[in-house]
Design a protein around this nucleic acid. Sequence first.
DNA 1: TGTACATCAGTGAACGCGCGTTCACTGATGTAC
DNA 2: TGTACATCAGTGAACGCGCGTTCACTGATGTAC
Lengths: 200, 200
Amino acid sequence: VTKRDPPYHHGALPRAVLDGALAAIEETGPAGLSLREVARRAGVSHSAPLHHFGDKAGVLTAIAAEGFRLLAEATRTALSTGDEFLEGALAYVHFAIAHRAHFAVMFTPALYRTDDAALTAARADAAQVLFDGVQGFLGPGREHEVLGGVLAIWSFSHGFATLWLSQNFETDADDTDAAVRLAAQSVARLVEAGAFPKPE
Amino acid sequence: VTKRDPPYHHGALPRAVLDGALAAIEETGPAGLSLREVARRAGVSHSAPLHHFGDKAGVLTAIAAEGFRLLAEATRTALSTGDEFLEGALAYVHFAIAHRAHFAVMFTPALYRTDDAALTAARADAAQVLFDGVQGFLGPGREHEVLGGVLAIWSFSHGFATLWLSQNFETDADDTDAAVRLAAQSVARLVEAGAFPKPE
DNA sequence: TGTACATCAGTGAACGCGCGTTCACTGATGTAC
DNA sequence: TGTACATCAGTGAACGCGCGTTCACTGATGTAC
């Protein structure tokens, strides 16, 4: 026997299923995803995924949870090493681009089970990273400003990532970092010019 | 005859189809939209929509185009009357909430035909409103700063709208305006605190 | 004014298809003694 | 070390369903003469 059949036990079927799903989502988006297509890509029978994930929503829930874990990891590193929030925004955008399938699923909650325990935990942790980052940046005594800061930074980063991914910015350049930097500098300029209201 | 049958000719079938589609999308999102469901809601045969829109993508393309027209209108008014960009951001967020079905379709280009003439025109016009607004705000002589300003304002507004709609901000309050204002004020605070890089 | 006819709007039966899920099953692994 | 058996992983046939699209059609409207 020179060529061995694939073993009956896959060994890493859940991972293969998730990878198949992610590949399919990268190509055609999460909307039309079918479990049978996922199984085809993973090279397993079309009912194998159900063994591990229960149903289709289970697969997408697992992807969303994994996405929040990856996002927390990426932003935690950036926020602890960088000295400006630009680092955090860059990490966020990089994550969205590098893991666009995860990103698309994470922010389309209609696709998955939002009450899943692992998911909500991962998501809360990712949010905590953001709150801790803003708190650490502002320093003690400014706790009441943290929520607003989170809203601001998150909106900016998320909006940029979303618009960039959906190709709404018609820049020829595909230098993401430069575009994020330009946008961030422009925020400062606009504040200076009075585009955003000053508090009080 | 006391009760008249509905006339054979509908009179406003295209509008009824779009409204049916919008209602369905508001309830379950644009992902699983089916033409037959749309026809059911519009009270017409399931092949009627095809007469006017060609196919499913045609319906969604029409919705996206209509959405960009509505968005241009809403932001044009806000940017010409308000004296701060906060007005523009508020208008953007209000649009996203009031027309969430349009909004969802507009920014999911995988759903429709991105090369449709009416669509691209409406979209270009909406973008022009934004560019004109930033240019008018900055004043003459600062043309090179416009692109960055557009990236910044649009990212902020779009990110806020998206995160708000997908219920990622866990605020109890549903006072959208207050939240947008808080976020905008926090942008100014963060710039002051050095979170965003200053140009040059 | 009337009539023939082209054109447009909308219908409903029919098609073929891929889907999610179920279910009884087989193969492989581990564990108790 | 061997053997019985429970457990877990994965298979593939089968189900019923709703879908998008096609197609020949019927009803209604407008227009030419």
